[in-house]
Design a protein around this nucleic acid. Structure first.
Lengths: 252, 252
DNA sequence: CCTATTTGCGTACTACGTACCCGAAATGCA
DNA sequence: TGCATTTCGGGTACGTAGTACGCAAATAGG
């Protein structure tokens, strides 16, 4: 009987309050995860190595494996810890727009606090309890409107996609500069800038050039730009709901 | 005078047809990239190591560095090679819906052929010539409709977000099974399945449970499900365009 | 105290990206 | 043709990963 069966970390809970023989555990999943999150926040996810986490805890790398089966599982725990910071009211308010606006802002804030979060979220199927809690809240915003469950998940997916990609863009080359070690100004001017300028000046891609040169939202403050895009998505969802058959109030 | 300045790979073209002293190059970026793509397609991006690529080419790992500055740059080259497979007509047809449907299908197909593509695309700012070409085509679909450039990039972003996340979901746990080494059925039944079942049976998340149990789109063929979601996004964009001020034809 | 059990963690193995360096090959010029 | 110059090929080696293994230390029950 081996307990090494490869199964989701959420099916392998930590043994709390074990009563029996053997040395008491000196650490905990929660403590290890918090340390990993702190390192990743400050120096990027690639700095949160097993050795480094252990070192910050004042122990050896292999000790961590008493608490976490694999490093990938630690990523799942980190995602869930970050998602646990998202504070939401108990149920839906009845106004799905304001519910989802609240959720989107909280999610963006969490993504900015933990620059690795969105990348991890979209790179692995993470269904931790806190992500499920947040997802349930999002679905709940559309509950009671008589919508099909597939439509609801579709709308929530649209919102998620927007929040993720907008937040990722916002972090985007900020992260890139930390990874390459270049400072932001240097990166934009010397690394990617010259190439974009060359492309624009070649005249071969007029619309891309317009999107670089004539963009007005590019000069907005990040939070304002996010709000603009969010309104667009919510408008789109509203339009889709309004156009559904069954709600043929204003139709001839 | 060092030529080691860290700058975008697209500003450091391969030296073609050099005439002068010195040994002739025995390989090429294109050849190295093609090999990397072939390995990554068959065994995942993590199998495309410098050593493995070199080995498949019958040479040593360090030889590759005569052609590619860093492994990350090779990723950019791989992205661009995959994007080069996307075949599009010269200009826009005048019907933005059909233009974008064509583009979305081609992009999904490329993402399925190269299961690493979407992950790489969204994890690094990749502006290779072929991605720009595709992007220009997408923007071009909305050209001539009198739309603001920021609106156009917003709509294209919505479409991109959908195609990426839908394709990623489609690959999703298929990739995960290859990474963990479990076969798909075993993964769904023994790895993630029990946890989802436990969550559903707990009754704590009724809407999530409905999305698992009552989904009708989940039983559709993947291509059909993709088409459904795509229609939804295109409908949403159409609704946004119709609601724009300036197009006040049917408004009181 | 003795034994069974659990944790802490040093050692070690494999695999990675890539810096350094030198011999091989190819050219232009004497 | 021979030599100097330049470029390519790739072996060796360094630093850093994740983590398997095994043993000592700690703890509880008998």
């Amino acid at each position: 009987m081996s307990d090494e069966e490869p199964t989701s970390i959420w099916m392998r809970p930590e043994r709390y309050e074990r009563s029996g023989p053997g040395r008491r555990p000196g650490y905990s999943r929660e403590q290890i995860t918090r340390t990993a999150v702190r390192i990743a926040d400050a120096e990027g996810i690639e700095a949160a190595t097993m050795r480094r986490i252990a070192s910050d805890l004042g122990t050896g790398a292999m000790s961590l494996y008493r608490y976490v089966p694999r490093r990938d599982d630690l990523f799942d725990l980190m995602i869930d810890m970050a998602m646990s910071e998202i504070e939401l009211p108990e149920g839906s308010s009845g106004d799905w727009r304001s519910d989802l606006t609240l959720l989107a802002r909280q999610m963006r804030a969490a993504g900015l606090r933990h620059s690795w979060l969105i990348a991890l979220l979209t790179s692995r199927p993470a269904l931790g309890p806190n992500l499920l809690r947040v997802y349930e809240y999002a679905l709940g915003a559309f509950d009671g409107l008589g919508l099909d469950i597939d439509d609801i998940t579709g709308y929530v997916g649209m919102l998620d996609d927007y929040v993720h990609s907008a937040t990722r863009r916002e972090i985007g080359w900020l992260e890139e500069t930390r990874r390459t070690g270049l400072d932001p100004e240097h990166w934009k001017r010397d690394y990617m800038g010259p190439y974009v300028r060359q492309v624009v000046e070649s005249g071969a891609l007029p619309l891309f050039s317009r999107s670089v040169l004539d963009s007005r939202t590019a000069h907005l403050a990040p939070a304002e730009r996010f709000r603009h895009g969010l309104e667009r998505i919510l408008d789109a969802i509203a339009a889709l709901i309004a156009s559904l058959p069954g709600d043929t109030v204003g139709q001839p």
